[in-house]
Write a protein that binds this DNA or RNA. Structure first.
Lengths: 314, 314
DNA sequence: AGTCCACCTGCTCATCTGAGCAGAAGGAGC
DNA sequence: GCTCCTTCTGCTCAGATGAGCAGGTGGACT
């Protein structure tokens, strides 16, 4: 395509997309046949001169979703558009909304849904509508009750999802991380706790997010880890955590001793799940999102456009 | 349009614009008739959910051009797209290119073209192609030869435009602004200078830019004015200059005494021209662009999208 | 110069799409 | 409960568009 044709294709595109002229009219204006105009427009599209964006908080990026499914082996992918996004909070909100939509549309409806907790999960619970399902029971898959600064967030998440879904919530009454291995083993052998974990193992589907390995981690906020603990983990290669377990970029546990003191489903148990929905959004979580997808921790990913493109780049 | 329809229209738009499905296929996917899909897409467009951009340095914004013609009474307007622009230099380059394109396509071809000088005009001369016209003579319409730091820029501009257009350049051998009124009157009564100005008055068309009233002004750079001179002009209401003459936001001369010492066509002479092409780009020139258009200094405006929108806002 | 080949052009035809219309549905007011 | 009015729905039909094809054009190579 020479320079003249390139310019013509731009002129044609202006008349077609901005002035709503027909290809025939454009042909008359530019002294071309309407077939030539059609070809110029096709070339303009194909060469990427034409960008069509859907500007809406609920807009998704289907081509990127397809690439994630095909190139990253996911069973499903939901990618929300970043077009016209105001800030990181809105990105987070859009992604949580999309996750709520996905859950609502999910078929078959899971009888039991295993959930983690955290800012993202809480926001998903807020975006779910009353009656999003009928009779979905919810079970927590990792510990964390009550140490949180905003007490009850973890519980409110699970209970909220369950209530709006017309089911019961089963909480895991345990800290996320114990200080001593013996305490962790003791609490796991507690009849109630063991029962909850057993229920969690039998869930039909899991819904969880991932945390970045930095000082903003919920584990730091909740007091389970200190900033220097996290720095140590990062030094060992940690990119973030899933259900409280810190992993490196290959999805391996970074600190087996710490992991052994962490209550809840293990990463390998998650990997065996037939339906594991990860909801991860934001620049800060790009590395951990990568690790989650690469190591097969989820079968379904709900994320934002920038994160999705990051995953596809590598 | 309720929330459900809004969401459906977004889903439909995704399938239509990103997946290239037909409205009929979308109808099947979303369990709607194809007419409903068509209406949803029309509403999505109409409500502004669909943004179509033409990403190309030569892309123009025809709807904005139309508004400028209709709402600002211009005979013609050329607005280059700001989409995907890298920086102010590229905006300037795009606008200069558009001005060169406009000149090249101009019919009837002017026998004599009056030009000012400056960074913008120089860039236009660079973008013109050899043989853009056959036999267009060029005449400078304001003084400024030789005091410029990059000597010859003013002359190179006029000569370049003329040579590439197969014609002769007539330079105005005079400073832009004289220190004393008497000197200005003396130089204007010089036979050669008077002849050039007479020729300039008889030009078929004028091509000029405008300068912002700040320290970056070519008059400061050229030594005609000091920074404090410009500050004084700004204090008196100056928003910029056209052919070396400083005007306020209403297009009135700010400093009549200074104006009387300025050599070349007057603003009122420009206003009477049947074809006066102003080329103005960049954030810094928004106020002076406004003054130029409001006070009828040009019949044709070549500018960038942001500047055009600024003109239409007010 | 002749031949071949790739590309381009203008066409036919099938499909897609938007305008306009008649009837149905859903509310508001009586 | 009934009527009227607005809005919505599914349709016809004509215009717009894209796929595919035959013929033509121009350049490269022999």
């Amino acid at each position: 395509m020479d320079e003249t044709d390139e310019l013509l294709s731009i002129r044609a595109a202006e008349l077609y997309y901005e002035e709503n002229k027909t290809q025939d009219e454009i042909g008359q204006a530019l002294r071309l046949t309407r077939w030539k105009v059609g070809r110029l427009l096709a070339q303009a599209k194909q060469r990427g001169f034409i960008r069509i964006e859907i500007l809406h908080p609920r807009a998704r990026r289907l081509p990127i979703e397809r690439r994630l499914r095909e190139e990253r082996g996911l069973a499903d992918a939901i990618v929300v558009s970043s077009a016209g996004v105001a800030g990181p909070e809105e990105l987070q909100a859009r992604t949580a909304q999309a996750a709520a939509d996905y859950l609502t549309a999910l078929r078959p409806v899971p009888r039991t849904l295993g959930v983690s907790w955290g800012r993202t999960l809480y926001e998903i619970s807020q975006h779910l509508r009353n009656g999003w399902a009928t009779g979905v029971n919810v079970v927590q898959i990792n510990g964390g009750v009550s140490l949180n600064r905003r007490p009850g967030t973890a519980a409110a998440t699970a209970v909220g999802i369950a209530q709006k879904g017309g089911g019961q919530a089963t909480l895991l009454p345990s800290p996320a991380i114990l200080e001593r291995l013996e305490t962790k083993q003791a609490i796991e052998s507690d009849r109630v706790v063991a029962g909850v974990i057993e229920l969690a193992r039998s869930a039909d589907a899991y819904l969880f997010s991932a945390g970045a390995a930095d000082e903003s981690s919920v584990h730091v906020e909740s007091g389970y880890l200190s900033v220097s603990d996290v720095e140590l983990l990062v030094a060992k290669g940690a990119v973030g955590d899933v259900v409280g377990r810190y992993l490196d970029s290959d999805g391996n546990i970074v600190d087996p001793a710490l992991d052994a003191r962490t209550v809840g489903l293990t990463l390998d148990e998650l990997r065996e799940a037939p339906l594991a929905i990860a909801v991860i959004a934001g620049q800060a979580k790009h590395p951990v999102a990568d690790a989650v997808v690469r190591s097969g921790l989820c079968t379904v990913l709900v994320t934002d456009e920038a994160t999705a493109l990051h995953l596809l780049d590598g």
